[in-house]
Measured scan of single mutants.
Amino acid sequence: TEEFVRLWREAVRHNQTLHWNGTDFIPGDEWAEEFARREEEKL
């Protein structure tokens, strides 16, 4: 979602874990980066 992408970019900028829907998205984590890339492509 647009909100997820916005929060993810913020988390990456501050190198912080994003807690989203009970899942931890960690900047630099391969799975999280791939998920975020797919979400961005949907926008």
Rank of each mutant, 00 (worst) to 15 (best):
T1N: 13
T1A: 14
T1P: 14
T1L: 14
E3T: 10
F4Y: 02
V5K: 06
V5G: 03
R6H: 13
R6M: 09
L7I: 03
L7A: 13
L7P: 00
W8T: 03
R9F: 10
R9Y: 12
R9S: 06
R9P: 07
R9D: 13
E10D: 12
E10N: 04
A11E: 00
V12F: 02
V12N: 03
V12E: 05
V12P: 00
R13A: 15
R13G: 06
N15Y: 05
N15P: 00
N15E: 06
Q16P: 02
T17G: 05
T17A: 12
T17Y: 04
L18H: 01
W20M: 03
W20F: 11
W20I: 06
W20P: 00
W20G: 02
G22A: 05
G22S: 06
G22N: 10
G22W: 03
G22T: 02
G22L: 03
T23C: 15
T23F: 15
D24R: 05
D24S: 08
F25C: 05
F25D: 00
I26E: 09
P27Y: 02
P27D: 01
P27N: 02
G28H: 03
E30R: 12
E30G: 10
E30N: 10
W31L: 06
W31P: 02
W31N: 06
W31S: 05
W31M: 08
W31C: 15
A32F: 03
A32H: 02
A32T: 04
A32G: 03
E33Q: 07
E33N: 07
E33P: 02
E34N: 12
F35H: 07
F35A: 05
F35M: 08
F35N: 03
A36L: 05
R37G: 05
R37V: 05
R37S: 09
R37N: 07
R37H: 08
R38L: 13
R38D: 07
R38A: 13
E39L: 15
E39V: 15
E40N: 07
E40V: 13
E40A: 12
E41N: 11
K42E: 05
K42V: 05
K42F: 06
L43W: 10
L43Y: 09
L43I: 10
